[in-house]
Amino acid sequence: MPNFFRLIIAFALLGSSIAMMVFGHWGWGILVLLLALVVSVTFFFNERMLIAQYYLRKENMEKAESWLKSIKNYERELLKAQHGYYNLLIGLIESRRAPMQSEKYFKKALSLGMTMDHNIALAKLSLAGIAMAKRNKREATMYLQEAKKADKNKLLAEQIKMMQGQMSQLDKTVVQTRGFRPR
């Protein structure tokens, strides 16, 4: 359902709630007012994305993916501010199956923009991991430093340290393999 329908429904419910309160039906008026608030909140936070985030936290990727796939045209159904988050969630799900394929979703999420710094840090940390898998140390270091800057609340500090440790291991394996000459 397009977002403007949600607003129309919310305003209709708000109007009927006020009418019920004016005519003395306070109980029903308050109930309809709460329903109008729930409908108006779904304008800003899409319920399918919220449910998909819930299943991602529970690590049930199949259900999370099915809820995200139920959004047919995310550009029409979501607010512009949610487009980046949609691509971030798709990228997180795709990174479990095919990590190299998820790079485009993380880059698109960053280009569309996200308001929360820890989500930006998560996307950049994921891109750093992909760059490390491609053995592109310079790009991985760049994304890791950007993720460190974006992680202001230190929510991903442990993962960033772990990634830096893996990067130093990557340096050691490169040095060791350069000294080996096959016959």
Rank of each mutant, 00 (worst) to 15 (best):
V38Y: 02
M21S: 15
L155Q: 10
Q82F: 00
L112R: 06
S102Y: 05
A12H: 04
K152R: 15
K154S: 15
R96V: 07
H118A: 10
A36W: 03
Q164C: 04
L78W: 00
F44C: 04
R96I: 09
G84M: 05
D151I: 11
Y54Q: 01
L144C: 08
K152H: 01
L33W: 01
K152A: 13
M49R: 08
L35N: 07
K104T: 10
K148Q: 15
Y86S: 08
T115P: 09
F11Q: 12
S17I: 02
N60R: 05
L89Y: 06
Y74M: 14
L50N: 02
I130W: 04
E158C: 03
N136G: 04
K72C: 01
G91M: 05
T173I: 13
A128E: 05
Y86T: 04
K154R: 14
Q176H: 03
K152C: 03
G29W: 07
K148L: 06
M61N: 13
E65T: 04
K137Y: 02
A133H: 07
M163L: 14
K134I: 14
A109D: 07
A19D: 11
S126W: 00
K69S: 10
V175P: 00
A140I: 02
S111M: 04
K69T: 10
Q164N: 10
M20H: 01
F5S: 11
S40A: 10
L34G: 15
Q145I: 10
M1T: 00
R135Q: 05
L7N: 12
M116W: 08
M1G: 07
I30V: 12
L7M: 01
I30Q: 11
W28S: 13
R97F: 06
M163T: 08
N73I: 11
K58Q: 14
W67C: 07
L89W: 01
A52C: 07
R48Y: 03
P99T: 02
R96S: 09
L79T: 04
Y86N: 10
Q164F: 00
L110T: 03
Y143H: 06
K137L: 14
Q53V: 08
L112D: 08
